[in-house]
Design a protein around this nucleic acid. Structure first.
Lengths: 109, 109
DNA sequence: TGGCTATTTGGTTAAATTGCCAAATATGGC
DNA sequence: GCCATATTTGGCAATTTAACCAAATAGCCA
């Protein structure tokens, strides 16, 4: 693999890695409805505020979300909404594997 | 967050995690063109065969790829090609952040 | 300035991921 | 059965990730 191709796939993985966590996926899901401040998100994902703040900085580092400070609060919103397209395919994968497990069960019975 | 919702996002993250590695993304990319045996993939990603075998088992665990044994070789192919849709959005994210870095540079100059 | 609220960051620990080597396993041909 | 080829798996060390608490920072208002 030539260096440029390698760099491209490293970069792609960097983006996908940022999404590869249940809390971060849920945060993205909530932000797809409307902006939220850190505190609100912490309640939604039911985790320590500092933990959520770290999740948000990971998402911000790859520009999936953006932040805007208003007063003492920081409001986060989706910067690249197309990441929501991921979910559609992910559901397909889940269903496909669920179907296979079901098929397998039928054959076994 | 209720338990069902939580389980859904854990499951989604499981799928996305399986893709969150440069070598695995490259493997998916190659398999989108045609099936390959483990040896071929090891050469393509330039890694130890055992390492590639582990990457493949990770992808297989979430049903992104499937395998078929023929003789002593095991051929892998894409089982859920829609994961390729991920790439389109990932490129957008990359470009969007690249654009912003560019804008930032302009403003600074 | 001092106090209050909201968020980020440092430090630490536990857990998960990755990669390689070596050993085990499976298949086909002699 | 025995050998050669192809793949998987066990074991280990190094790196990364994740979570929490505590401390630092930032903005607002009295």
């Amino acid at each position: 693999m030539d260096p440029k191709t390698h760099a491209l796939f490293v970069e792609r993985a960097r983006i996908i890695k940022a999404l590869a966590h249940p809390s971060r996926l849920y945060i993205v899901d909530r932000l797809s409805q409307r902006e939220h401040c850190v505190q609100e998100l912490a309640e939604l994902v039911n985790a320590d505020i500092s933990t959520v703040s770290r999740h948000l900085s990971i998402l911000k580092n790859v520009d999936i979300v953006k932040d805007e400070k208003r007063g003492t609060k920081v409001f986060y919103s989706l910067h690249t909404p197309c990441v929501l397209n991921f979910f559609g395919c992910v559901e397909k994968v889940i269903k496909s594997s669920a179907r296979e497990r079901a098929d397998l069960l039928e054959k076994e019975s």
